[in-house]
Amino acid sequence: MASLVTKNLKLQIAQRTLCESLSFEICTGQTWAILGKNGAGKTTLLHSLAGLNKQQLDNNKASAITINGQAIQDINRQQLAQQLGMLLQDFQDVFPATVLDTALIGRHPHLKAWQWPDNKDIDFVKHLLKQMGLAGYEQRDITSLSGGERRRLGLVTLLGQQTEILLLDEPVNHLDIAHQHQLLKYITAEEFKQEHAVAMVLHDINLAKQYCDHVLFIYDDGITQAGTAEDMLNAENLTEVYGYPISKITTDNKTVFTTN
C-alpha cells in the first residue's frame, strides 16, 4: 500500500503563491484528477510531488511531502524513482534513439551500473508497447513518431519503471479520442488500481468525471480543495474553478458538463 501525503504544502513561483497550504493524501487504489486554470500551478505541484523541486521545501520549513511515510528530501533519487514515477508534459528528443531503447530507459532505476536490460526486461517492455498500441514500432526512431505516439511511448517508459505511485501531467494530451479512452481505461482498470496510486492533471472535466474517484481543485489565489469526485464535481464548483459558466446536462443516465 503506497501513499503520498502533503502537509501544509506552500508553493511559490516568481513571488506568486500557487498554493497556500495544501494537505491531502493519495493512496493505492485511488485515481486523482488535478483541475485548474492554465497557470494555476498544476504542473509545478506535480513536479514538487515528484521531488523535482526540493528547493521549495527547503524554503518553507512548515511544508512537508512524505512518500510511503518517509520525507521526500530523505529519500535518495534512485530509491524515489523505484517508488514514484512521473510522465512529463513534453519530451526533448534531440538525439536519435529507437522506440525499444526509449521504452527500456524506464528500467533504469532497477538496474545496476554495469547491468544491461535482460530478456525479461525486454519482454516486459514489449508487452507494454503492445498494450499501448505500439507493437511493431520497436525499431522506429523516436523522432519519426507523431505527437500521440510519442505520448503513448512516454507512458510505456513510465509503466516500465514499475512504480506504485504515478504522476501524470496531461496524459491524454495529443491523443485522439479513442486512444484517450484506451489509455485511461488501462490505468483505471480494477487490477491496475489495486497496485497503483495515480494523480493526473487533466483539462477535460468529463474525462475526470468518468475515470477519477478523487479531485483536487487549484484556484487562482492559492486556495486548494480536495475531495471525492462525487462531492466535488458539480457545475457550481467548476464554474468557480475555471471562471467560466459551466452547466450539467443529464441524458440517458449520463451526466455531461458543458459550457453555455
Binding site: Q79, A81, V94, A97, I105, H108, P109
Partner: peptide, 22 residues
C-alpha cells in the same frame, strides 16, 4: 562510471531526475 546516467541525461534533465539521476 557516469556512462549509464548519461544515457538518461541525454533525453532531458527533468526526465533524468524522474528516473533517479542527480
Amino acid at each position: 562510471f557516469l556512462a549509464r546516467s548519461l544515457n538518461v541525461l541525454i533525453r532531458g534533465e527533468q526526465f533524468a531526475q524522474t528516473l533517479g539521476v542527480s
